[in-house]
Amino acid sequence: MAKWTYLAGIGVVVIGALGIQIGRPVGAATLTSTLTPPHMTASLQMDWPSGPESYLAVSPGGEVGAAGADQPIPVGSVTKMMTAYLLLQKYPLGLYSPGPSVTITAHDVHEYQQDILSQQSVAKVVQGEKLSERKILEGLLVASGNNIAHIAANWVSGSSQAFTQLMNQEAKKLGLHHTHFVGPSGLNPGNVSTPRDETIIAEKAMQIPVFRQIVAMPQISWPDSSRPIENFNYVVGHDGITGVKTGSTLAAGGCFVFSAPRTIGSHTVTIFGAVLGQQGTKQLPQLQSALNDGVSLINQLTAQLKPVSLVQKGQVVGRIQAPWTHSVSLIANQSVSTVMWPGEHVQERIHWSGGQTGSLSITAGSQHWSIPLMLSAPLSQPSLIYRLTRGL
């Protein structure tokens, strides 16, 4: 009897030991990344304009670089981008539609005549004529008529004062922290902004097809005008430049907000940017100086843009290792490539919670991708034999 009691006791001890062994933690599977972030030249090489402030961005992509203090300075007729943008918010317009019309009043004609006397940029108006929304936009963005800016403001808000309040409200909504408007035309030097803020406005407005179409026009026809009105943006239509707006006053100097689509490898991106405050010389007027500098920035950046593969479908991006089995690979389920410039940073992070799938997050500038991942083989669970024999 004592013998069987002894053996039973041993059995209890063995079973207890086996239970403890089986219940012990088996260790966690670990993830090791095999990704190598793309290597780019250390820094962007740019010969920035001598004027006070300049800015460059790529869409999609984000901010590339800037020069100057990034402080509010007068912007002249670049203001009219916001005026046109708000007109289109109030009265959306299709690409091939003239849109609603506004009737020119005696006040509009008087303002036009006063603007001529003070040598402002204008577009002729005649009392009683009807100008379509499209013509108003052309007069704003191509002819850069200060009188047209006030007609648009009155049409949208009832007065230039009320419209100016709307402009500042919209600037705040768009996050333009260094922009302030005192009128719809830009003649007043109290209209101030920065190249970064003006580029944000341009990118936003250029998402509207009819705005994009009009700013790309080298010239327009105009009622009661025997000759076409030339775009003050003399370089539009050359070297792939599609806009956006110029400005030139004594206070603002030469200003140029630009857009230029570029094909880099299999990608199409748009270079956006702005040059503000160019003073020019006796030989080179301030507006021409700003245009030249804008073209130079576009060409310099274009030469440094490169197509870059961030991940390939089927690429092993990480390995899962567990002490009870052989390692398995995490594999990307799609390819991602983009356009990059020297100095741009790429952040990559693998997300895996222990299952059969995961994801890869990639951030480059303002772009973000989430790529699905899958295991190359199922990750097995620890076997009973492994649980019993580990550590022995």
Rank of each mutant, 00 (worst) to 15 (best):
T36M: 05
H368F: 07
V109T: 07
G99K: 02
Q283L: 11
W155Y: 07
M1G: 14
L176K: 00
S359T: 08
F258M: 09
Q304Y: 13
Q279V: 07
L360W: 01
G99S: 02
E230Y: 15
P307A: 11
Q334W: 03
H345R: 09
T103M: 12
I104P: 02
I116S: 08
L7D: 06
S226C: 06
G280Q: 08
T302S: 15
G186T: 06
Y234R: 15
P74S: 03
T199L: 04
A377C: 13
L174V: 01
D239Y: 15
D239A: 15
S193D: 02
V257C: 07
T105E: 04
V192H: 02
V317F: 03
V26I: 05
L88N: 04
S59P: 01
M206E: 04
P307H: 13
Y96L: 11
V109W: 04
Y6N: 09
P60H: 00
A29D: 05
G237D: 08
A364F: 00
L388E: 15
W341Q: 12
V339N: 09
P49A: 00
V14Y: 12
I271N: 05
G65V: 02
I15A: 14
Y234D: 14
S335G: 11
V339T: 11
W4G: 10
P372G: 06
T302L: 09
V125Y: 02
S50L: 06
G186A: 08
G280K: 08
G23Q: 12
R390P: 10
I73N: 00
A17L: 14
P228I: 08
P261R: 07
W222V: 03
W341C: 04
S54M: 01
Q278D: 13
S159F: 05
F211N: 00
A364S: 12
S370W: 01
L291I: 15
E344L: 09
S185K: 05
P37T: 03
E170Q: 15
W352C: 06
Y55A: 01
P184E: 04
L18Y: 11
I200K: 05
T30S: 10
R227Y: 15
A332G: 10
P323T: 13
Q21N: 12
S118I: 11
T270L: 08
K80R: 05
A322T: 10
Q127A: 14
G51A: 09
G254K: 12
G265T: 08
T263I: 14
I15C: 13
N231V: 07
A274D: 02
T357F: 00
L7P: 08
L176F: 01
L284H: 12
M374R: 14
T389P: 13
I214C: 00
E344A: 13
T179D: 05
G186F: 03
T263M: 10
S193T: 03
L310R: 06
L330K: 07
L93W: 01
S359A: 08
A29H: 04
G11V: 14
V58G: 01
H180D: 03
I136E: 01
L137R: 00
Q278Y: 10
S289N: 14
P100N: 07
R24E: 13
S296I: 11
V109S: 05
S353Q: 12
Q288L: 14
V156E: 00
P52Y: 00
L360G: 00
V13D: 10
N333M: 11
P218R: 04
L141M: 09
S221K: 13
